[in-house]
Design a protein around this nucleic acid. Structure first.
Lengths: 96, 96
DNA sequence: TAAAGTAGTTTATATTATAAACCTAATTTA
DNA sequence: TAAATTAGGTTTATAATATAAACTACTTTA
């Protein structure tokens, strides 16, 4: 309980944290839904989803809704663990 | 309770958050003490303390301990409010 | 069929964090 | 007492990160 634990840099980012926060509470979410909830630009969201996916924190499934592309995201077990650890580590910073 | 609040970018940084966390719990702290607790390099610490000071979140007092320079830091009222707001905003991200 | 819209991705730029190099003064060692 | 070492920083250069602008590919509407 002495020094500060390093916060997972992948999660210590407002947008990625918001994405993970959403995905913690749903089975899966579509690109457009996440975009609206986070108020992120599509470009930024695309990049950050990719990073989370690269890390294995989320799973991205590309399909079609009718004839339009549809990107769906869901959190993985690894992602859940990482999120929980992040929250736990963070407590050290925000509690007296 | 719908969309995500923006997290104060000045506080949403591991090192600056650690600095503020320390200063929330003491009257004042010396540069070297903060450096040890946070395990930051002196250069990085110097820069980040300066940013917090510029924002009015902390007060930096430069004096001498014997013949050596001594930099002391303390949190301001503005800093306390900002920290508390940050923690509050953050809860939206980490609670279900 | 031209213009506008949807759902994204790629790439260029701005911002931020970090470390390396540097400074000044004091102290120790040879 | 000259040279190296240490303390306590600051400044500056670089690496990493976030963001927005521009672009792609396809679809719908006028």
């Amino acid at each position: 309980m002495d020094n500060f634990k390093n916060l997972d840099p992948l999660l210590h980012s407002q947008l990625r944290l918001a994405i993970m926060s959403i995905l913690m509470n749903v089975d899966s979410a579509e690109f457009v839904y996440i975009k609206e909830k986070t108020e992120a630009t599509a470009g930024n969201l695309s990049v950050q989803l990719d990073k989370l996916s690269q890390a294995g924190y989320i799973k991205i499934t590309k399909s079609f809704k009718g004839k339009k592309p549809l990107t769906s995201c869901s959190i993985t077990k690894v992602g859940i663990s990482a999120f929980e650890k992040y929250v736990d580590d963070l407590k050290q910073y925000i509690n007296p």
